[in-house]
C-alpha cells in the first residue's frame, strides 16, 4: 500500500473514533454485555451456558449495526463533501482507497467489539472467562463483514440519505427477517425445500453463520440435537470461505462500483 493509503487508514481511524454514534454504541455494547454477565452470575446455572449464548444474541444484533454505521458513509460521504475527487487526485489507487477505508474503520469497530467482550469477560468468575474469548474472532469477522457491506452500499449510492435508509433495511433483513424468510419458504413449500439448501441458506448469512457457530461452540456438538434439531455446522474451511467471501466480495464490488461511478461523479 502506498503512502496516501497508509495516511488514510490513520485518518479514518481518527475521524471515526470521534464519531459520537460509534462511541454511544460502543458504550451500549459494554453496558449490555456487562449487564448480561452480572445477570448470568446471579442464577444457579453454569455461567458459561447462560452468559455465552446471551452474548452471542446481543452481539448478533449490535455488531452488524455498528459495522454498517461505520461503513455507510465511507464513499458517499466523501462524494457529498466533495472530498472524494480530492482524495482520488492524490497518488492512490481506487482499491487502496477502499481497503484503507475498511482498515481505518475496522480499528474502532474492533475496539468496540473487544471492549464489549472484555468487559463481560472481566466480570466472569475465574475459569469461565476463557470461554468468552472464543467470541472474539467470529465477532470481529461478523463486524468486518457488515463493515464491508456498509462500504459497498456507500460505493453504490449517490446520496448519504439513501445509504442510511439502505443500511437500516439491510440490518432488518439480515438480522431479523432472513431466518423468517427461510421459515416462510419452508411453510409455503410444505417442507419440500432440500435440507442442504436450507442449511446452506442459513449459514450463507453472516449473522446466521455467527449464531450457529457460536451457539455450537458454547453449547457443544450435541447442543442442537438436544433440542431435536439437526443443524448444519460448517467446517472451519467452509466457515473461513463464507467470511472471506462476504468481506472480500463486498470490498471487490466496492472497488468495481467506485470505478464505475467515476464516470458519474
Amino acid at each position: 500500500m502506498g503512502k496516501v493509503a497508509r495516511a488514510l487508514i490513520w485518518h479514518e481511524f481518527l475521524e471515526r473514533s470521534r464519531d459520537r454514534w460509534i462511541l454511544v454504541l460502543t458504550l451500549l455494547f459494554v453496558l449490555l454485555s456487562s449487564g448480561i454477565t452480572l445477570y448470568g452470575k446471579a442464577g444457579d446455572m453454569s455461567q458459561g451456558e447462560v452468559v455465552g449464548p446471551s452474548l452471542v444474541t446481543l452481539s448478533s444484533l449490535l455488531i452488524p449495526l455498528v459495522g454498517l454505521l461505520l461503513g455507510f458513509d465511507a464513499v458517499v460521504g466523501e462524494r457529498e463533501r466533495r472530498t472524494l475527487n480530492l482524495l482520488l487526485s492524490m497518488p492512490i489507487h481506487r482499491w487502496e482507497l477502499i481497503v484503507a477505508k475498511f482498515l481505518g474503520r475496522f480499528i474502532p469497530l474492533a475496539f468496540a467489539i473487544l471492549a464489549g467482550i472484555f468487559s463481560a469477560s472481566f466480570m466472569m468468575e475465574d475459569g469461565y472467562e476463557a470461554g468468552l474469548n472464543r467470541l472474539i474472532v467470529p465477532s470481529l469477522l461478523l463486524g468486518a463483514s457488515f463493515l464491508a457491506l456498509g462500504i459497498l452500499v456507500s460505493s453504490v449510492v449517490l446520496r448519504q440519505a439513501t445509504a442510511s435508509s439502505l443500511l437500516i433495511t439491510i440490518w432488518f433483513l439480515l438480522v431479523f427477517f432472513y431466518d423468517l424468510g427461510i421459515l416462510g419458504a419452508l411453510v409455503i413449500t410444505d417442507g419440500a425445500l432440500p435440507d442442504s439448501l436450507c442449511a446452506g441458506l442459513v449459514v450463507a448469512n453472516p449473522v446466521g453463520l455467527y449464531r450457529i457457530v457460536m451457539i455450537q461452540r458454547f453449547g457443544g456438538d450435541d447442543f442442537f440435537s438436544g433440542f431435536g434439531m439437526d443443524a448444519y455446522i460448517p467446517g472451519p474451511g467452509v466457515e473461513a470461505f463464507i467470511w472471506l467471501g462476504w468481506i472480500g466480495g463486498a470490498l471487490l464490488l466496492s472497488v468495481f462500483f467506485l470505478h464505475l461511478k467515476r464516470e458519474r461523479t
Binding site: 463533501r81 475527487n85 480530492l86
Partner: peptide
C-alpha cells in the same frame, strides 16, 4: 487540486 465547495470533516 482545490475542489469546488469542499467540506472537510
Amino acid at each position: 487540486y482545490l475542489p469546488e465547495s469542499v467540506a472537510f470533516s
